[in-house]
Design a binder for these strands. Sequence first.
DNA 1: CGGCCCTCTTGACCTGGGTCAAGGAAGCGG
DNA 2: CCGCTTCCTTGACCCAGGTCAAGAGGGCCG
Lengths: 229, 229
Amino acid sequence: MMQDSLLVVRKAALFANLLPEDLEQILKNARVRQFKSHEPIFSAGSEARAFYFLVSGSVRLFRLSPQGEEKVIEVIMPDSTFGEGVVFLGGRYPVHAAAVTDSEVVELATNHFSSVLASNHDTALRMLAGLSTRLHQLIQDVASLTLESAGQRVAGYLLSQCPPGGGQAAIHMMIPKNVIASRIGVKAETFSRVLAVLRSGGLIHVAGNDIQILDREALMRWRDGVGRP
Amino acid sequence: MMQDSLLVVRKAALFANLLPEDLEQILKNARVRQFKSHEPIFSAGSEARAFYFLVSGSVRLFRLSPQGEEKVIEVIMPDSTFGEGVVFLGGRYPVHAAAVTDSEVVELATNHFSSVLASNHDTALRMLAGLSTRLHQLIQDVASLTLESAGQRVAGYLLSQCPPGGGQAAIHMMIPKNVIASRIGVKAETFSRVLAVLRSGGLIHVAGNDIQILDREALMRWRDGVGRP
DNA sequence: CGGCCCTCTTGACCTGGGTCAAGGAAGCGG
DNA sequence: CCGCTTCCTTGACCCAGGTCAAGAGGGCCG
């Protein structure tokens, strides 16, 4: 019996405008699952039999070096899907996934997903669009890692986290700083130091997990050059 | 009148098994173009009206920092397509493209490509597969840039450039070393230095643009730890 | 309220790899 | 054959950012 709670997946762009019968087909093998903070969801290299829609909480996608060092590739926030970029071909996950905070997800089996993909042009195109967006994001990340300094990446992150528009803005960091740091390719200590500099420069104001951006203009200027001290 | 030379695009996986009428539709607005070494093909940020199939030569996809520093995202070799990951939505190129050596490409207008995509499931799935592969590659690059040392990346590059199997192998570098260096996130000087170390360690033998891998096993071991001096 | 844990901050130090500069070597047109 | 250019190598130096270590809060449970 299909649970109503599964229907939240319609919030994902991927499933918008999906025909009811296709949606039912996809949800037939779906179930809601809970994960506690730090609990693994899937492992890199394991066979990808499902992909996920995040209902609440937060999830990090990451890789590990042989020495156990971790690089966060992406942080997933509610109402978006993850792991979908790989499954339609019956491949393997390229990253590990684990809950950052207590999370609720819908796990969608991929058995018959490619048939839906083949019969539903709209969904295939949406998936193409989704992958294309991730591709751009990843290209941006590669460029940022190689062409920008740590300070520039931190500033860029702050600017990306607040809606555009002039004046001030507030950011509430829902996830630990070390996860954010790894996401932008920096050690936690360095992240902390950069925030200290920005704070003492009067560009931002930090209070616990809340950051006020006091002068967005100056922050953008700092990112575009001054951030390379 | 369609030129026969255009039919080389069938070598691309993207167009395999394409119906003749769809192929004709795509090739209707296609043309062969030549680019001299260093000549730009398209620019990041410009509207993406076409994508490309590389017939001969080599092409680099790259980003520029505001200071003009360059990061090569990908090096394209003959018989593969590039710029296709973005065009179907009428977006903009996320990277610059320029010929590395004198090159011949087929330029494919994207006007009606999405209609082909919608009517041809196979092509849509192949495109999905292609994007998925690039996504994995990019994730690998991000991980490599943050989790591995320069030496490890160089060793990894060498190993990736020769077919698997035991014993020796030869690599002929078709493109300048500074392009390879940028591709793997290293300065040309560092690339040169790492090769010198590997050479003096008896792991490889360098002669101009040809590199012999003398001991693949040792090179793999070096990459997995020793390469972090 | 006190002890414990976990995250964050800050300081002191170190080093991988980038930068700058000076040759080689190889191709190429004249 | 020579001069010029382009690419590559090597040496000397430097610095951004990583590492190690020592607190500083702050939240939670008994």
